[in-house]
């Protein structure tokens, strides 16, 4: 599994298409289905009714998981937003620990921060 993170509109999906040859048809927007790439993990974390363990197990079956970095701001006033942000962060830590590769995309430039 490859984890790709970065800010909003940093060029994460473009990178995944370019680097791994996926198309839009391979990419699921915050939905867990048979498509090999999931993006907007932070949206999935905000709306899911699954447990953290269940989510993690399903995400680990993906080829690529793409997530916006959401933890680099002021703590949200809204409780649900706070929880979603924490869940997103915890999932990313656990995915990163198991991923063969973790890439942070900055201004469209991929920065490989883990490669095994």
């Amino acid at each position: 599994m490859v984890l790709v993170i970065g800010g909003l509109a940093a060029g994460k999906r473009e990178y995944v298409k370019r680097e791994f040859g996926y198309t839009d048809a391979d990419m699921a927007d915050a939905a867990l289905d048979s498509r090999p790439v999931l993006y907007n993990l932070q949206d999935l974390a905000a709306k899911t009714d699954k447990s953290e363990e269940e989510l993690l197990a399903l995400l680990l079956q993906k080829d690529v998981v793409i997530c916006n970095e959401t933890g680099n701001g002021i703590v949200p006033v809204d409780k649900d937003e706070r929880f979603a942000r924490e869940l997103t962060g915890r999932l990313c830590i656990q995915l990163a620990a198991r991923a063969e590769k973790v890439v942070r995309v900055v201004c469209g430039i991929p920065q490989v921060i883990k490669e095994s």
Partner: peptide
């Protein structure tokens, strides 16, 4: 050492 990171970054 200064350790810098976002919320839930580890």
């Amino acid at each position: 050492t200064l350790v810098y990171g976002g919320a839930a970054s580890g």
